[in-house]
Nucleic acid binder design. Structure first.
Lengths: 104, 104
DNA sequence: GTGAGAGGTTTGCAACGCCAACTAGTTTGA
DNA sequence: TCAAACTAGTTGGCGTTGCAAACCTCTCAC
């Protein structure tokens, strides 16, 4: 089965809209806590929780749990790997979009 | 539950990598047959078939089946609606990507 | 006619996303 | 003081999806 164009394979872990939103927010803030992410992405708690687990499993983010003012606090930040992979992902999308432009 | 940014909701029908690839190819060629799409997208037949059905159900593409040199031939083209929706989708992605750029 | 190949479609299943329900602890207030 | 309400998440159940393998129908070469 012929590959389409070499490396135009989109990373599903990143591509999923919910996670893309999370990663996008994280790209611009260095780190964020659960509540902040929930507000900015519009995801439900459950959703956000499971997406974060997957991103952590994939090594894209680092999660640090602690207690802030006696309440549980989940802090999330991109790992260097995550930062690189999301950058690559945007490049892939850009490349794909270019293909779609009929030179017009 | 607060909406994240109003209309930054990604269209899942379009966003799915396989279909994004199909739509991207179709954006640049006006119409294409099954085999051509399979080659350019790298999808398997089964996959391509089911994705095309979904795109058709969603009104994004028009599918015309006929016989070419006695063999079945499936021809696919974007509908005006499809063309518009994929354009909007790229806009949404662009907006999202902009959010990720920390002004650097 | 028989085998190989083209051009797809259908099926079966694992993985995924999503919401609702639940857990664990804290604050409020009667 | 003790229960109701709130904060901050996690887990479970379920429907949907994507994927590849198996299958189908027809054609052509021999």
């Amino acid at each position: 089965m012929p590959e389409p164009d070499g490396d135009l394979i989109l990373d599903r872990l990143i591509h999923e809209p919910g996670r893309l939103a999370i990663l996008t927010v994280l790209s611009s803030v260095s780190d964020a806590d659960f509540v902040f992410l929930q507000r900015t992405t519009g995801l439900t708690k459950g959703n956000l929780s499971s997406h974060l687990s997957k991103l952590e499993d994939g090594g894209l983010v680092e999660i640090v749990k602690s207690f802030v003012r006696k309440k549980p606090n989940t802090n999330v930040a991109l790992t260097p790997v995550g930062r690189e992979r999301i950058a690559r992902h945007w490049e892939q999308l850009e490349r794909l979009r270019k293909l779609a432009e009929p030179s017009s």
